[in-house]
Design a protein around this nucleic acid. Structure first.
Lengths: 212, 212
DNA sequence: TTCGGAAGAGACAGATCTGTCTACCTCATT
DNA sequence: AATGAGGTAGACAGATCTGTCTCTTCCGAA
């Protein structure tokens, strides 16, 4: 019997497998909810996706949802914190790869961005989108999104400073406007987005500020 | 009595005053609804503002609303078409003011943009915001917004071409990314927006493309 | 003065949304 | 074998949202 076989297999797994083996750990309800919600929120918008939809698509009971997330707002914040970790993780990675060349770090981050903008699932920036969907500055999602963007561009400014930019604050601000706009254009009108034009403009700015 | 005085004044207005005197024409219910809805939609977001709220704040009956706008989507489209007229009107105006200097036209439009971004009521771009709020490309609001942006930047490209830009398509695309991003940054994090940095970046691009 | 169209007031329907609550089940650990 | 944490199933409440419908009132034009 399949049932019997499975239980035999299970008994062979050490009692502390949860800590030992993280790869084959079964996805918890919380993880599943967050994964499904992330995809729906990003693809269709946060306001457009109701709790019931998330519950149904993640195959979870309503009580399970509310045991893991007190309110929808809590889920929204978890979604954004997750995205933020991913985003800042990419910066970490690029800095570790080129610890001695801020210019290469910026170049890597740009390549990275362009790849994501050209991907078919691109729906723009989760953080800008959230601020637009929740213009109230007191909304926890709004705040989380603003904080992330602040931190991200603070780090880019730091990289520009290490790269010897003459006016790192100005350069970071200009890169921020250009990249934010590129994200919006690639989302709102994919046909109007040309990665080469973005690359040229960024190169022009970086040369102007003499980053090495 | 005030009432009597008013009616006497009224009788002195010609029968066809509606067509003759457009200045003192009393605002119709439709106009009032659109004005109130525009402000609310722009300030608080379209999805966040319900029909009931618009009806209440414009002091109109529900039946009056639905006599003038078949659905909320119709109102959304009217709101965007209004904004689009304003936006393209600013382009017309700048072109009429400097018919022989595309460079001055672009400069005027930039000044104009910066003024709006620094205004306290700035809530970003109504069209980008609408696309974010309605990611479904079939939504009439989404479509209207995308069409406006297409037309606006087609016209900027045309101005760049008249100005002798070496690569007008590239310049327009770069200006579009930069300005779109400036709008988002000035909205999502007002403190991080510096008009001078935007100006410098735009000057750099315009010089690079040798617009005259 | 009468008439018709536009507007006001508001009840109502039906859908949907967030969040609560009860009752039962599964399973790893003790 | 018992237990407790976490999971399933689903009814329910209360708010809100879009849109319909009826009845009354106002006002300008003929």
């Amino acid at each position: 019997m399949i049932q019997t076989d499975l239980s035999q297999v299970n008994t062979q797994i050490p009692a502390n497998w949860k800590k030992v083996n993280t790869m084959e750990k079964k996805e918890t309800a919380k993880e599943r909810i967050l994964r499904v919600a992330s995809e729906l929120f990003y693809r269709e918008g946060i306001r457009a996706v109701g709790i019931d939809r998330i519950i149904e698509e993640s195959g979870v009971a309503k009580a399970s949802f509310y045991r893991n997330f007190a309110t929808k707002d809590d889920l929204i914040v978890a979604y954004l914190e997750n995205k933020s970790r991913e985003s800042l993780g990419r910066v970490d990675e690029a800095e570790q790869r080129y610890p001695d060349s801020p210019k290469m770090v910026l170049s890597t981050l740009l390549d990275n961005l362009i790849d994501r903008l050209n991907a078919p699932e691109n729906r723009g920036c989760a953080f800008m989108n959230t601020v637009v969907e929740f213009p109230d500055a007191n909304h926890p999602g709004h705040q989380t999104a603003v904080e992330h963007r602040h931190e991200l561009w603070r780090r880019v400014e730091e990289i520009a400073r290490r790269g010897g930019a003459q006016h790192p604050e100005e350069l970071a601000s200009q890169l921020r406007m250009l990249c934010s706009g590129a994200i919006m254009v690639s989302y709102t009108d994919k046909a109007a987005f040309h990665a080469e034009y973005l690359r040229n403009a960024i190169r022009l700015l970086i040369e102007k500020h003499a980053v090495r």
